[in-house]
């Protein structure tokens, strides 16, 4: 069935069953491959996107539930917070294999958009659903703190 979807500010029409996870629509149909498949059960966060500004696991989000919602993927990130996060990721050379990093960046941006000055416990909570098997966590934590400082001006 045809489903209308707003992704990165553009309305897109895709032919997919309503129960199709958003992740596969983004990747297979829209070729937005920045969002990654890691577990399929909302455990690893590699597929993290924003739905109306909130971090969501696209691997368990049925595409049919997104009529009228705003989906943002790593490809569509923009704004001061996104710039600050990318700059901080570069400063700390956070990625290793890089596969989970789209999800980490999406989580960081969602956190800092809502909580520009997160306490360590806020960072812990926000990233509780993002696994990095390379364990780049030391740098992620530093980068989030740095980005927070930057956007705080």
């Amino acid at each position: 069935m045809a489903i209308s979807l707003k992704v990165n500010g553009e309305t897109r029409s895709v032919d997919a069953a309503a129960d199709t996870p958003l992740l596969w629509v983004l990747r297979d149909e829209l070729r937005l491959t920045g969002s990654k498949f890691g577990c399929g059960i909302a455990q690893c966060g590699a597929c993290t996107v924003h739905v109306d500004g909130q971090a969501r696991r696209s691997c368990v989000t049925p595409v049919g539930s997104l009529e009228g919602r705003e989906v943002t993927t790593i490809e569509g990130l923009k704004g001061d917070v996104a710039d600050a996060v990318h700059a901080a990721w570069a400063k700390h050379d956070a990625p290793q294999c890089g596969y989970c990093q789209s999800g980490q960046v999406m989580t960081a941006v969602a956190l800092l958009e809502r909580t520009p000055k997160p306490a360590p416990a806020d960072i812990d909570a926000a990233f509780a659903g993002n696994i990095c098997r390379c364990a780049t966590y030391v740098r992620i934590r530093k980068a989030v703190a740095d980005a927070s400082d930057t956007i705080g001006g």
């Binding site: 491959t33 993927t73 990318h86 050379d93 956070a94 990625p95 960046v105």
Partner: peptide, 21 residues
């Protein structure tokens, strides 16, 4: 010395096998 692959891996641009269509 900055790593060569950080930028592409922070923006979703890096291509992995799963991203090949």
């Amino acid at each position: 010395l900055p790593k060569l692959d950080t930028a592409a891996k922070s923006t979703g641009a890096a291509m992995f096998t799963l991203d090949v269509y």
